[in-house]
Simulated scan of single mutants.
Amino acid sequence: MQPDFFARKRMNSLLFCGLLLALTVIAVLITNYNVIKGFTSIPKAAEWAFNNFYPDEKALKRLPVIISSLTETVLVSIAATTVAALFALMFAIAGSHTTGTGGVLGFVSRSIATVFRNIDVAAWSMILLISFGQNVLTGYFALFFGSFGFLTRAFTESIDEVSSSSVEALKSTGAGYFSIICQSVIPSCIPQLISWILFMMETNIRQATLIGILTGTGIGFLFSLYYKSLNYSAASLIVIVLVLAIFSIEAISNYLRKVIL
Rank of each mutant, 00 (worst) to 15 (best):
R117W: 03
I119W: 01
G106T: 12
V136I: 13
I127M: 15
G133W: 02
I66H: 01
F91D: 00
G103F: 06
E72L: 15
A94L: 14
G95A: 01
G95F: 03
G38H: 02
N135Q: 14
K44D: 14
D56V: 05
I112S: 00
A113C: 00
M126P: 02
L63C: 04
V104W: 10
T40K: 06
T81K: 09
S109Y: 00
V83P: 05
F50K: 12
Y140E: 10
N52S: 04
I66K: 04
S111Q: 05
Y54D: 11
K61I: 08
T98F: 09
S131D: 07
R117N: 14
G103I: 11
S41N: 08
V104Y: 07
I66W: 05
F91A: 03
I78H: 01
R62I: 07
T138Q: 13
R117D: 03
H97F: 12
V121G: 06
A92T: 11
L60H: 04
D120H: 07
V65A: 15
V65S: 14
I130D: 03
N51Y: 05
F116E: 01
F116M: 08
F107C: 10
I119E: 07
S109P: 08
A122H: 14
E72H: 11
L63S: 04
D56N: 13
I112C: 07
I127F: 14
A92N: 04
L63P: 01
N118G: 09
S96R: 05
N135M: 10
L89R: 04
E72I: 13
I112H: 00
S131G: 08
L63D: 04
V65M: 15
R62T: 08
V121N: 08
S131I: 13
I93R: 02
K37V: 00
R62M: 13
K37P: 03
R117C: 05
V74G: 06
A79T: 12
T138G: 06
L89H: 03
I66Y: 04
Y54R: 07
E57G: 15
K58T: 14
A45T: 13
L70E: 09
G100T: 01
H97P: 06
Q134N: 11
N52A: 09
T81I: 07
D120E: 00
R110C: 11
A142I: 02
D56M: 06
N135G: 11
V76D: 01
G146I: 07
V76M: 14
I119P: 08
S41L: 07
V136A: 11
Y54W: 08
I93W: 06
T82R: 02
G139I: 10
G133N: 07
N135F: 10
I127R: 06
A122D: 08
T101G: 07
A84S: 06
N135A: 15
F50Q: 13
R110Y: 03
G133V: 01
G102A: 07
I127V: 14
S125A: 15
P43K: 10
V136N: 09
F141E: 09
A122V: 15
T98P: 01
A45W: 02
K61W: 03
P43N: 06
H97Q: 15
M126H: 03
S41E: 10
V136C: 02
M126C: 03
L89I: 12
K61L: 10
A49Q: 06
E57T: 13
I66M: 05
S109G: 04
N52V: 10
S131W: 14
R62E: 11
F39G: 05
F53H: 01
V65W: 08
P64N: 11
Q134I: 13
F145G: 04
K58A: 14
V76N: 11
A88Q: 03
V108K: 01
